[in-house]
């Protein structure tokens, strides 16, 4: 596709904003640290050891997590909207988040059934991550198997929603039989959290994320062709089935790991691509993909800063903040523009 407009100006603004938001994010928190000390600690050690510790082992990993979560969810939303030719598609319509929820519910809520020491072993951090990844992967595998048989993408979308309903029902049954304590733990996971990731965990998160990102970049041409519809794409020599599988795997790697490490985070995947389309009036994924990457990261960093409630000891659930921000945007788009395009 031709880029007679290269969008250099908006891209520069986005990159600068991303840096400001990143620095702003690590400067804010329940412990007030002067801005100059924050900058200094990034490049050298500072006298105040506890400040240094907070910045390096808490705020920096959290800011990086926010960056990966926002950009990854935005990109998987963009991929899904094009693949399913539906402006309301997001990374979670395929049942990825409900699959993850089911995995986590089985581990946390089902632990009581096994009882005793096994329960303690099960409810560790890694088991939650593994369960979430496994759950989303299983649901995705089923959706992919179906997508090879059912050629209509709209049908796959509905099947994804049905998988979501089934997992939600299983979760309700499990929560009915579990203790208040376990239920609380599950609900807290559902709030989403960007903190609590160590550098090691972040490295694993980043590695899987990177594979998903590279697959998305390799799909740019196929995504542009798919804008015409599947019949035209075929007549342009595109291998539809292969492209569709690569796009679905990319989405699940991105959205699956994000859900595993940070919990189900609502609306970012759906809203970010639409917000970007207001700035970049093109359908070309070569422009949209990097723009969604930057914009998603910025929005997530801002949401996290709000969730920290600066100057207070409270941390609000990140999922609530993204919904409070994302849902009005979608409503505004529908009312203002009368229609949502992809």
């Amino acid at each position: 596709m031709p880029n007679h407009t290269t969008y250099k100006f908006p891209f520069t603004i986005l990159v600068v904003t991303l840096f400001i938001c990143f620095l702003g994010n690590i400067s804010l928190g329940s412990v007030s640290i002067p801005l100059s000390s924050v900058f200094k600690s990034l490049f050298a050690s500072i006298d105040n050891e506890s400040w240094h510790y907070i910045i390096h082992n808490y705020r920096l990993p959290k800011a990086f997590t926010a960056l990966l979560v926002g950009s990854g969810l935005g990109i998987s939303g963009l991929l899904m909207q094009t693949l399913f030719r539906n402006p309301l598609a997001g990374p979670f319509v395929l049942g990825i988040s409900s699959g993850a929820s089911l995995g986590v519910a089985i581990v946390i809520l089902g632990a009581g059934i096994f009882g005793g020491s096994l329960a303690a072993l099960l409810v560790s951090k890694w088991s939650v991550v593994i369960a979430a990844s496994f759950g989303s992967f299983l649901v995705l595998l089923s959706v992919m198997t179906v997508s090879l048989k059912v050629r209509d993408t709209m049908a796959i979308l509905i099947i994804g929603l049905m998988f979501g309903s089934i997992t939600a029902a299983v979760v309700s049954v499990l929560s009915y039989f579990s203790s208040a304590e376990q239920l609380q733990q599950y609900i807290f996971w559902g709030f989403g959290s960007l903190g609590n990731l160590s550098w090691n965990e972040l490295l694993i998160f980043f590695s899987i994320y990177l594979v998903g990102l590279i697959m998305s970049i390799l799909s740019i041409k196929a995504l542009n062709t798919l804008l015409l519809g599947e019949n035209y794409a075929k007549s342009l020599g595109l291998n539809i089935n292969q492209s569709r599988i690569i796009i679905i795997i990319a989405t699940s790697l991105l959205a699956g790991t994000i859900t595993a490490f940070a919990g189900p985070i609502a609306f970012i995947g759906l809203a970010i691509p639409h917000m970007v389309r207001q700035i970049f009036t093109t359908a070309n994924h070569k422009i949209l993909l990097p723009a969604v990457f930057l914009f998603g990261a910025i929005v997530m960093l801002i949401c996290d800063s709000i969730a920290q409630l600066p100057m207070s000891d409270y941390t609000l659930p990140i999922n609530a903040i993204t919904s409070l921000l994302g849902a009005p945007v979608v409503i505004w788009l529908l009312v203002r523009k009368r229609k949502m395009l992809f």
């Binding site: 596709m1 031709p2 740019i220 041409k221 542009n224 062709t225 015409l228 595109l238 359908a283």
Partner: peptide, 23 residues
């Protein structure tokens, strides 16, 4: 499928069989 394409982008998609991996 996407009505958000500009005419230029639409016509340019005709070149897809001849372009490189990123189009």
């Amino acid at each position: 499928a996407s009505k958000n394409l500009t005419v230029l982008e639409l016509v340019a998609l005709g070149r897809q069989p001849y372009t490189n991996w990123i189009g």
